[in-house]
Every structure is written in C-alpha cells, then in structure tokens.
Design a protein around this nucleic acid. Structure first.
Lengths: 142, 142
DNA sequence: CTTGACTCTGTAGTTACTACAGACTGTAGC
DNA sequence: GCTACAGTCTGTAGTAACTACAGAGTCAAG
C-alpha cells in the first residue's frame, strides 16, 4: 500500500469508491476530455485531488439528469471559461428538458399499449394472443 | 429497372420504402436472425415477398413498443414455433411494461429537476447559475 | 457505349460505457 | 530474499441497435 500520510492524492480505486463511479468509467471520462489527465506519482500511478473529485461528481450528476457527454462537455466549458454562464446553461437545460419530455411521451404511449395487451392476455389461457395480434396489425402507435 | 410484371418479389429499396424502414436496417435484421435470408434473383439481388414484409412490420412495431431485439426474437419464436404463445407473450410484455414504467419514473425525476432549474435560470441575467450550482451540490436526484 | 441508378459485400463509425489481457509495481508473510 | 497476491498500468474488444460508407458488380435508357 501507498504511504497515505505523505501522498496527498487519491488513487483511482479510492476515487471510484468515494464517488460510486466505476473506475473504468473515470478513465473513459479522462480519454473523452471531460476530466483532465491527473498528475502521476513516482511509480506512474495517477493521483487525484479533491478538485478532481468535485469535477467528477459534477459529471456524474449531469449524467443522472440525462445530459449527454457532449452536453456535459458544454456545461464544463461554461464552468471553466465563461463568466456569465447562466444564459447558455439555461438554454442547454431547457433544450434537454424538451427531449426528456418527448421521451416521456414516447414511453407513455408504449405503456398504454402494453398495459392493454397485458390485461387482455390475462392468464394466457386463450388460444389467440392479443400482443401478437397487435404487432401484426397495421401501424399506429406513434 | 427490373421487369416488374414477371418478377413477383420486391427489391430491398421498395421494401424499405413501403415499410418506412431504412434499407440498411433490413439487412441488419437479416444478419441478426430476425428475418430470414430472402431468396435471390438470377442476378443475385434479394427478392422479398409479402410474408417477409409482414414479418418486418411485426419487428418494426415491436421496436416501436420498445422491445429489445432479443425480446423481438423471443416473440418471433413464439409466433413460429409455439401453438400456445399467449402465456409466454404476456409474461414478456408485462416484464417489459415494468421496465418502461421504471424509465418513465427515471425521466420524470429528471424532468422535475430540470423544470426547476430552467425556471430559476430565467432569462439568464443572474450572475450565479442554478443549474451549475445544482450539479456541484451533493448527490440526491435518484 | 457510356451514364447513372441501383444492388452487392464487408467494414467502420456512433454512444456511453464495461471488461478483459498482459505487463508492472508494491506489500505482507515467511 | 522470495513468493504470493493485490493493485495499477496500457491498449484493445465487446455491448445495443443501428447507420454510413467504400469499392465492385449489374442493369436499363439514351
């Protein structure tokens, strides 16, 4: 094990554990340019600090809200470079909100049809099958 | 152009146009084992008939309902082999319904948070940014 | 006989990860 | 000092469900 008192950084596994993020994902985010290349210790191991962890958490929360990595990159750019980020951030968020609502609408359509066929299928003792019939019938879900 | 009166099959582009499905996707479904390898004409071109088109439409409708290709494969197997498919089909559908509802719940959580930050961001004239603040705050959306 | 449109095959790119393989490094026990 | 084992390193390949080529062959019209 590494000398914990002398070194001030976290190693990758520690960071992953603290943030609940898969350690391979951290590396992926580095390669994808969302997180900077962290400094290395004498043995070549990566060393992360709290600033880094904070940035990773930002990414993870943005992902929880369904932002794509491209959108997260844009948000991080606003954090890094822009001094008046709110206008642009608001635009990003409201555009994303529209997509989220569209997906909800899609899924609700699916839910409605599925709920019906499941009800009609019942215990499955009938000889025909409402689900299969529905799928063979003409198009009209969306 | 092909002799349309003599040949009874459709070509790939026609099939794609009739069903609204991308022609590359048809090929993909063939390779994925959802659709059979269609017979070829003398020149090696694929020739599709109405049975084939019906099956493709089945796949497309199942996809519209959000079934994965694995699930569609299972449904097609029920159609092909099983004489009492309804019990199994009902199980598939209700399992899928659970997933759909879970996704809706996920998206609704996102929607709620996004709606709030968009409202708070307003016209973007403020110096801090509620979205960025939210993303930097501790985790707790899900 | 050339032009343009269509088809064929196989492969690579997309998104956001996840999971290795094979080589090093570091540490604890003996 | 030696061995076992755990951790890290790199690069690459796999996942889902397509989509988009490149390069070759085929066909009908002008």
């Amino acid at each position: 094990m590494r000398d914990r008192t002398a070194a001030k950084g976290l190693q990758r596994a520690e960071l992953a554990k603290r943030t609940g993020c898969n350690l391979e994902t951290v590396r992926y985010y580095e390669k994808a340019g969302l997180l900077p290349e962290p400094p290395r210790m004498a043995n070549g191991y990566r060393s992360y600090d709290l600033t880094y962890e904070r940035r990773l958490r930002f990414v993870l929360r943005a992902r929880e809200l369904g932002f794509s990595l491209d959108e997260v990159r844009a948000l991080l750019r606003l954090v890094d470079e822009h001094d008046q980020p709110c206008a642009e951030a608001g635009r990003l968020a409201s555009r994303h909100l529209v997509e989220v609502r569209a997906k909800i609408a899609d899924l609700r359509r699916m839910e409605r049809v599925l709920k019906d066929v499941v009800a009609q299928c019942g215990d499955g003792t009938r000889s025909d099958c409402p689900l299969i019939e529905t799928l063979f019938r003409e198009r009209g879900f969306r």
